[in-house]
């Protein structure tokens, strides 16, 4: 009977903070955010060749590839499934499929890539949605499995395109890469879906409190699975653009995309526990991460330092978002 009486653990709701301290927390959070933004601006302006149009284009182009994948991850995170750690291998596998299907023409290859992306990520989502499997561990396992399968099938070789249709994805209408337009359009569609449709509202509720959503009779499993389906489609779009940009694909096509997408989602202020966040925040987060990476690159820092700074930004934002949410809830 002990189990009936014990309340579910909610450490963040345990001790209400006194009003004076809450306001101090809010002030500290705001000051830190303002200082960080100022520091970033100063660092940017004092970096040679940072404030140029060519560099701005480079930033939004690099933000666009990470951003589309991060939009997919946003759906997963809002729905309370934390993160997928299998983004890089999924993108690599789909990119390889996309390039090897080029002989069919651009549109069939895109459709095939989307179908494979939805299948790969959607299967994981179905397991997470219906069985409530731990998404982090599950996606660690699937990342390994996808990489293994891709290596096995491709024999570890680099896939070259079998046609030239993919090159249309590298078009730059109006001097800006096509992927940037895709990012903006997809972000707007996603934002509208999250705010205005029953699916979006359900997803927020599931992320906020899975058991309450289940008790309210909401389709928890199906909604979670659909969110992962959509994420898989967005990963496939990223894969098509990345593969087209590189004109070849191997198992390392994804690079550090998993961490970049997580960094973009969390830097946008979406809490990893779910129930909050938006597509536009992720868009901002992706641009922020791309700008910081760009500054570090222009200043000649190594890849290691770039990854480290991304990790520190994520840590800082996770703490700040948590402190602010706690300040508001109290």
């Amino acid at each position: 009977m002990n189990n009936l009486l014990s309340a579910p653990a909610r450490p963040e709701a345990s001790v209400p903070e006194p009003a004076r301290r809450r306001s101090r927390t809010e002030v500290v959070v705001t000051v830190i955010v303002v200082l960080a933004v100022l520091a970033a601006i100063v660092a940017g302006l004092s970096t040679h060749r940072f404030a140029t149009i060519a560099n701005a284009k480079a930033i939004i182009t690099s933000a666009s590839l990470v951003g589309i994948a991060a939009l997919g991850l946003t759906l997963i995170t809002i729905g309370g499934s934390a993160v997928s750690l299998a983004i890089s291998p999924s993108v690599a596998a789909v990119g390889m499929i996309f390039l090897s299907a080029q002989s069919l023409g651009l549109v069939p290859a895109l459709v095939l890539a989307l179908a494979c992306g939805i299948l790969i990520t959607g299967l994981q989502g179905a397991v997470v949605g219906y069985a409530a499997a731990n998404p982090v561990l599950l996606t660690i396992a699937t990342s390994f499995a996808i990489a293994g399968l891709a290596t096995g099938i491709s024999g570890g070789e680099t896939v070259s395109p079998t046609g030239t249709g993919y090159d249309r994805l590298n078009a730059t209408p109006g001097g800006v890469a096509l992927s940037v337009y895709a990012l903006v359009v997809l972000a707007l569609i996603l934002e509208w879906t999250l705010r205005r449709t029953a699916f979006g509202r359900t997803l927020y509720l599931i992320g906020e409190n899975r058991r309450a959503a289940w008790a309210a009779g909401l389709p928890v499993g199906r909604t979670t699975a659909v969110a992962w389906f959509a994420a898989g489609a967005l990963f496939a779009v990223t894969a098509a653009f990345t593969a087209a940009f590189n004109t070849s694909a191997n198992v390392n096509l994804g690079g550090t995309l998993t961490f970049d997408a997580i960094a973009a989602v969390l830097a946008g202020g979406t809490p990893i526990s779910g129930g909050r966040g938006s597509a536009l925040r992720t868009l901002a987060g992706a641009v922020l991460i791309a700008a910081v990476s760009d500054i570090l690159l222009l200043r000649g820092y190594s890849t290691g330092v770039q990854i480290m700074v991304k990790g520190l930004i994520v840590l800082l934002v996770v703490i700040l978002v948590h402190l602010r949410a706690k300040g508001r809830n109290a």
Binding site: V83, L266, L315
Partner: peptide, 14 residues
């Protein structure tokens, strides 16, 4: 989870 994930990324970079 999010804290140790951020640390993991940071440590790999470091």
């Amino acid at each position: 989870m999010p804290v140790t994930l951020a640390t993991y990324i940071t440590l790999l970079g470091l």
